[in-house]
């Protein structure tokens, strides 16, 4: 058994080396297929991160009329926080709103002089509300229509309506982008699988006479199939390693661009890819191995009936 296994591995190495051109072409096709799927997966990750950033920037600011009792605002805040749809609620006092306004218009002399001349604060307090998802803003906004709060909210309804249209558009856009990138990845994965399976079939087809001869000389199915399976393992491992190298190299090269793209946000694409290095390496490796072995086994099987 040991001698036979050793011979099977030796034959595989011999075949791989003596048919180096066919082996090289097969590896190149595998690398292209894996890299293509890897790139599309990477694009999907970047798209998901970008959409996440975009979503995190969406919020609704409920502005209260000046002199609204603080207790009313805090009461609404507590009710909002109790909703499962709410991610966070930030209370901004009337004074803070005035200070923020002054800061924003510090370069505008007329506005600065005007605000300095004020004897009372024209701003009321506000609440900055973030939902757990874009779809939840409609549910949250129902609370603003409550009789206890609606009279104190300053043109809240109108702002919310226009916000809701923008939120709906953004929600539709992100859903479409997600679907598109998923379909694209699946379609190209399918193409990659077909390319790999066909490449293996062609490689085995070119050895069909050899397989028949081995059988006529008295080789068992295992003895014939073994070298081809081991050879397909070499091809799979080499291709996956090369493809992972290309993908990781690409990530390194593009890391500066990624980081510039998400500057100021809590996203570090380089760190993300490096933290997921194992899945970037193992997924294509295991995928390529399984695919090449299964397709080789099936392809060889067709020529074993001698």
């Amino acid at each position: 058994m040991f001698t036979s296994s050793f011979r099977v591995v030796r034959f595989a190495l011999q075949n791989f080396w003596r048919d180096i051109w066919l082996s090289t072409v097969t590896i190149i096709i595998f690398v292209l297929a894996i890299t293509l799927v890897g790139i599309l997966s990477g694009v999907k990750v970047v798209t998901d991160q970008a959409i996440g950033v975009l979503k995190s920037k969406v919020d609704v600011i409920v502005t209260f009329k000046p002199k609204t009792p603080e207790q009313t605002v805090l009461d609404l805040k507590s009710k909002l926080e109790a909703l499962p749809e709410t991610a966070s609620v930030t209370y901004v006092s009337a004074e803070e709103n005035l200070a923020l306004f002054k800061k924003l218009h510090a370069d505008d002399k007329a506005i600065t002089e005007g605000t300095n001349a004020l004897t009372s604060n024209p701003f009321g307090p506000s609440l900055r509300v973030q939902a757990t998802s874009l779809e939840q803003y409609t549910n949250i906004s129902k609370l603003f229509e409550d009789e206890a709060y609606a009279p104190f909210i300053d043109s809240g309804g109108k702002t919310l309506e226009s916000n809701q249209t923008a939120i709906q558009k953004l929600s539709d856009f992100t859903r479409t982008v997600n679907k598109f990138s998923l379909v694209l990845t699946l379609v190209f994965s399918l193409i990659a699988i077909l390319v790999v399976v066909n490449t293996m079939r062609i490689a085995m087809y070119s050895h069909r006479e050899e397989i028949g001869i081995m059988k006529l000389v008295g080789a068992s199915n295992w003895f014939v199939r073994g070298p081809f399976l081991i050879e397909s393992v070499f091809i799979g491992v080499l291709a996956a390693t090369l493809a992972s190298g290309i993908l990781i190299g690409g990530i390194m090269l593009l890391s500066r661009w990624f980081n510039a793209l998400f500057q100021g946000y809590d996203v570090n694409m380089t760190a993300y890819f490096l933290n997921n290095f194992m899945s970037i390496f193992w997924v294509p490796l295991v995928g390529a191995l399984l695919l090449s072995m299964v397709s080789a086994a099936i392809a060889v099987g067709r020529y074993l009936k001698v």
């Binding site: 075949n15 003596r18 048919d19 006479e209 050899e210 028949g212 001869i213 006529l216």
Partner: peptide
């Protein structure tokens, strides 16, 4: 077995 077309393993 000996065949007309030899049937040798080319590699």
């Amino acid at each position: 077995v000996v065949f007309q077309d030899f049937k040798l393993l080319p590699r």
